[in-house]
C-alpha cells in the first residue's frame, strides 16, 4: 500500500475543515472494508481493479465522531448516523425500527465484515452491487450531507449518479440517512441472488414496499442488478391480486429490455465475464417476483384483506 497521512479528528467541525482544505487529496475513512482493499495495489490483477484503485494523500478517520453514530427518531423520520455499523443495523433491538434494513444488513458478507462496515460507507462506495441500495431506494430514504459551509438533504435516488459515482461534493461528507417512519412500518419483501450463497458478490437485489394509499394499494419495487442501474417500478395492485407474479414479471421484463443497452460493458461484466448480463436479468425477474410475493404475504399476515 502506498504511503499516506492519517488524521483522526475528535469533532465533525475539525474533519470538515480538514477535508475542505485538502483540495480533494483526502478521503474520509469509515469502516474501510472497501477502501482498504482498493488501496492495496498487490491485488490489482484486472484492468477493472486498476481503474478502481485509490491513492489518497490522507485518510480522515470518522471513527471518533460520535454524532455520526446517532440512531434516533427525528419527527416523522428515523435518523441513522453514517457510522452506524451494519451489525448494529442488523439488530432488531436497535433504536430505529426498520425491519427491511435489518433483514438486508444481517445478510451482508460475514459478522466480521458487518462489525466494521458502515451504512455511510455502503452508500458512498456506490457499488451497484451494494446490498442496502435497493431497500434505501424503496423506502425513499434521503441522505444528509454536510460540509464546512453548508448542509443539504438529497433523496438517495439523486445521490447515486452512476456506479461508484455519487453527488458528494468536495469537502462534503455523508452525516446520516433519514428514513420515513411510515414507510419503515409498511409490509415489505426482499430477495437477492449472489455469486455464492454466503460471502458472494450480490448479482441482483429486489425490495418491495407496499404503499397503502386510499383507495388503492401499490407496490414500490426496486431492483438493483449489479450489471446496471437501479430499476424502480410502481405496481398498481388494485384488482390484480391473483396475477401479481405475472404482472410484476412482465413489467420488470419490459423495463430490463429497455435498459439492455446500458447493461452492456458494465463494470461487473468486465470483472466477471462468467456472469453474463442475461443471467442477471433473468435473476432480477425472479427476485422481483419473490420480493412482491413476500410483501403481500406480510400484508395478509397483518390481518388485512389482500389489496
Amino acid at each position: 500500500m502506498h504511503d499516506f497521512r492519517y488524521f483522526a479528528p475528535d469533532t465533525i467541525e475539525e474533519a470538515l475543515a480538514f477535508l475542505g482544505d485538502s483540495n480533494g487529496g483526502s478521503r474520509p475513512l469509515a469502516g474501510g472494508t472497501c477502501l482498504i482493499p482498493q488501496m492495496r495495489n498487490r491485488h490489482l490483477g484486472s484492468p477493472y481493479r486498476q481503474k478502481r484503485a485509490m491513492r489518497p494523500e490522507c485518510l480522515v478517520s470518522l471513527r471518533r465522531l460520535e454524532e455520526l453514530r446517532r440512531v434516533e427518531r427525528s419527527g416523522d423520520e428515523w435518523y441513522l448516523g453514517a457510522m452506524t455499523t451494519l451489525a448494529r443495523l442488523a439488530e432488531r433491538e436497535t433504536e430505529a425500527d426498520i425491519p427491511v434494513l435489518s433483514q438486508v444488513a444481517s445478510g451482508v458478507a460475514s459478522p466480521e465484515i458487518r462489525n466494521l462496515a458502515t451504512l455511510g460507507g455502503n452508500i458512498c462506495n456506490a457499488s451497484p452491487a451494494a446490498d442496502l441500495l435497493a431497500p434505501l431506494l424503496a423506502l425513499q430514504a434521503r441522505v444528509h450531507l454536510v460540509s464546512e459551509e453548508s448542509e443539504r438533504w438529497l433523496p438517495v435516488r439523486g445521490f447515486f449518479r452512476a456506479p461508484h459515482r455519487t453527488a458528494l461534493g468536495a469537502g462534503e461528507i455523508l452525516a446520516g440517512v433519514g428514513v420515513s417512519v411510515d414507510a419503515s412500518a409498511s409490509p415489505w419483501g426482499v430477495a437477492s441472488y449472489a455469486t455464492h450463497s454466503h460471502m458472494g458478490m450480490t448479482l441482483v437485489s429486489a425490495t418491495c414496499i407496499l404503499e397503502e394509499t386510499v383507495p388503492r394499494s401499490r407496490a414500490r419495487l426496486v431492483v438493483t442488478p449489479a450489471s446496471g442501474r437501479p430499476i424502480e417500478l410502481l405496481v398498481d395492485l388494485s384488482g390484480r391480486a391473483e396475477r401479481d407474479r405475472e404482472t410484476v414479471g412482465d413489467m420488470l421484463g419490459s423495463a430490463l429490455a429497455q435498459q439492455s443497452g446500458k447493461v452492456r460493458g458494465c463494470h461487473y461484466a468486465q470483472e466477471n465475464p462468467q456472469v453474463p448480463s442475461w443471467y442477471v436479468e433473468h435473476r432480477a425477474v425472479l427476485a422481483a417476483q419473490e420480493a412482491v410475493s413476500t410483501a403481500l404475504d406480510r400484508h395478509d399476515q397483518r390481518g388485512s384483506a389482500r389489496p
Binding site: 475513512l29 474501510g32 482498504i36 485518510l59 478517520s61 451489525a87 459478522p111 466480521e112 462489525n115
Partner: peptide, 15 residues
C-alpha cells in the same frame, strides 16, 4: 476488537 470479531487485515493499526 472490543469483544467483537473483525478482520484485522482490513483495520488500520492506528484505528
Amino acid at each position: 476488537v472490543d469483544g467483537k470479531p473483525i478482520n484485522s487485515c482490513l483495520l488500520l493499526a492506528l484505528e
